[in-house]
Simulated assay, not measured.
Amino acid sequence: MAFTASDVKNLRERTGCGMMDCKKALTESGGDMDKAIELLREKGLAAAAKKSGRIAAEGLVVSVVEGNVGVVLEVNAETDFVAKNADFVAFVNSVAQTIIKENPADIEALNDMKCVGTDMTVAEALREKILVIGENMNIRRFERLEGALVPYVHGGGKIGVMVQFDTDCADKDGFVACGKDIAMQVAAAAPQYLSKEEVPSEVVDKEKEILTAQAINEGKPAAIAEKMVNGRIAKYYKEVCLLEQPFIKDDELTVAKYVENVAKELGGKLVLTKFVRFEKGEGLEKREDNFADEVASMMK
Rank of each mutant, 00 (worst) to 15 (best):
T4D: 14
A5H: 07
D7Y: 08
V8C: 08
R12E: 01
G16M: 02
C17F: 04
M20C: 01
C22R: 06
S29D: 15
M33H: 15
R41K: 13
K43M: 11
K43T: 07
L45K: 09
A48V: 10
A49R: 10
K51M: 09
G53P: 00
R54F: 14
A57C: 06
A57W: 09
E58G: 05
G59M: 02
S63M: 06
G67I: 04
N68T: 12
V69I: 09
L73R: 09
L73K: 09
E74K: 04
N76H: 04
A77C: 11
T79G: 05
D80K: 03
D80Q: 06
A83T: 08
K84G: 02
K84C: 01
F88D: 02
F88M: 03
F88A: 04
V92Y: 06
S94K: 12
A96V: 03
A96I: 03
A96E: 04
E102M: 07
E108I: 00
N111F: 02
D112R: 05
I130F: 11
I133C: 00
G134N: 07
I139Y: 05
R141N: 11
F142G: 00
E143N: 09
E146S: 13
P151L: 08
Y152E: 12
V153Y: 00
G157M: 09
V161Y: 02
Q164M: 07
T167C: 04
D171K: 13
D173R: 01
G179I: 11
Q185K: 14
L194M: 12
D205I: 13
K206H: 02
I210A: 01
A213M: 08
I216G: 00
N217S: 08
K220L: 10
A223C: 06
V229A: 01
V229Q: 04
R232L: 14
A234W: 05
Y236E: 02
L243Q: 01
L243W: 06
E244A: 02
F247K: 03
K249M: 10
Y258R: 06
Y258V: 11
E260Y: 06
N261D: 14
A263G: 05
A263V: 10
K264S: 13
G267P: 08
V271D: 11
K274S: 13
K274Y: 09
V276S: 08
E279V: 06
K280P: 00
K280I: 15
K286H: 10
E288L: 15
D289S: 12
N290D: 15
A296W: 12
S297W: 13
S297E: 14
M298K: 13
